[in-house]
């Protein structure tokens, strides 16, 4: 479905997108931003589910189980950590709190 140059184009455009997105981030948001991008690569969970779903041998099941557990930890931990950090900016905007 995604082959050769199509994959390369996706790769290139995504790389530029990532660069552009973060180049406008003020320093005060760098740590939440790092945490947020840490959450985004939790998408590895999708890959882990697919790999585990296709597991045939016991060894593949074992590795797949580790992959899914770790990936879920990445996604959930990354999300909760980011939300907790960003919640702190709530009171900082005058009139909103």
């Amino acid at each position: 479905m995604i082959e050769g140059f199509t994959a390369l184009y996706i790769f290139m455009l995504s790389a530029f997108t990532g660069y552009e997105v973060i180049s406008r981030v003020p320093v005060i948001l760098h740590t939440p931003m790092m945490s947020g991008s840490n959450f985004v690569h939790g998408i590895v969970l999708v890959g882990a589910i697919i790999a585990m779903g296709h597991a045939e041998t016991g060894l593949e099941q074992f590795i797949g189980f580790i992959a899914v557990a770790l990936a879920a930890g990445n996604a959930v931990g990354g999300y909760v950590a980011t939300v907790r950090m960003l919640e702190m900016f709530k009171s900082s905007k005058k009139g909103e709190a």
């Binding site: 996706i10 995504s14 990532g18 660069y19 985004v40």
Partner: peptide, 18 residues
């Protein structure tokens, strides 16, 4: 998997810049 390629690459490049 396009979602993994895009999300992974975006983090890869933004993380490198950071």
């Amino acid at each position: 998997n396009a979602a993994m390629i895009i999300a992974g690459t975006v983090v890869g490049s933004s993380g490198t810049l950071l």
